[in-house]
């Protein structure tokens, strides 16, 4: 059992991990053909992962409805929405133009999602009023940078104070880039370290934490 659940997946991961790490540096036609083949496999696996995700979501909400867990009404709404979209989608063979599926997409999903995102302005304003205070020197610097960028990124700001746009651009191009680059390097090093751990079988969380 351990062989199938642990040893074999770790061996496959090691073999493929090393192969494709080296493949990047080998532009030979055979190596490129291998990548072409495997990238198609990966796309097929990703397609199945979507199905698995949908099934898992439906299963978890079905449990909520069954147990009448707090907020189970939302699960019913989710079920109804997903099943109707899925049903109409299959019925109209995925075509959007002139179908019920297209109508549902254009007149429910698009405005609902756009509204959710647009609400961000209201919540940002409210949260800023409650929490964005100059309590420490660091918080003061952050607050000043935020005000300058907000001021300089809109036409009214540049109209009232010519030149503020360049100040805003400087903040974005120099201090922001320096901070973002630091974060990016940190993330990249972390990703490399994790990848090596997974390839070498040191990190096995992705195999599941069940009993052996």
């Amino acid at each position: 059992m351990v062989f199938w659940k642990r040893t074999l997946p770790v061996a496959i991961t090691f073999m493929l991990g090393i192969t494709f790490m080296l493949q990047y540096y080998v532009p030979h036609p055979a190596s490129e053909a291998l990548l072409r083949e495997v990238s198609v496999w990966n796309q097929i696996i990703a397609g199945f992962a979507v199905i698995l995700g949908v099934a898992s979501l439906l299963q978890s909400h079905a449990q909520k409805i069954k147990r009448k867990a707090p907020g189970w009404g939302y699960s019913v709404v989710m079920y109804a929405s997903m099943c109707s979209m899925l049903g109409f989608g299959i019925w109209s063979e995925g075509k959007g133009e002139g179908t019920a599926f297209g109508w549902l997409y254009t007149y429910t999903l698009v405005p609902l999602q756009a509204t959710m995102f647009s609400l961000l302005a209201f919540f940002v304003a409210s949260a800023a009023y409650r929490a964005f205070r100059a309590r420490s020197p660091q918080a003061t610097v952050l607050l000043l940078a935020a005000v300058l960028v907000m001021w300089g990124r809109v036409p009214l700001g540049e109209y009232l104070l010519p030149g503020i746009g360049q100040v805003s651009d400087w903040i974005m191009n120099i201090p922001n880039t320096a901070a973002q680059r630091g974060i990016l390097i940190g993330i990249s090093l972390g990703a490399i370290a994790t990848s090596i751990k997974i390839i070498c079988g040191i990190e096995r969380a992705h195999l599941g934490g069940g009993q052996e």
Partner: peptide, 24 residues
């Protein structure tokens, strides 16, 4: 949409100034 964004940014700046003033 830029005019709406201009006024919204300025309202947030005013709110930030007010909350910091009241806080201090």
């Amino acid at each position: 949409g830029m005019d709406a964004q201009s006024t919204t940014h300025f309202l947030i700046i005013v709110l930030l100034a007010l909350c910091n003033f009241f806080s201090v």
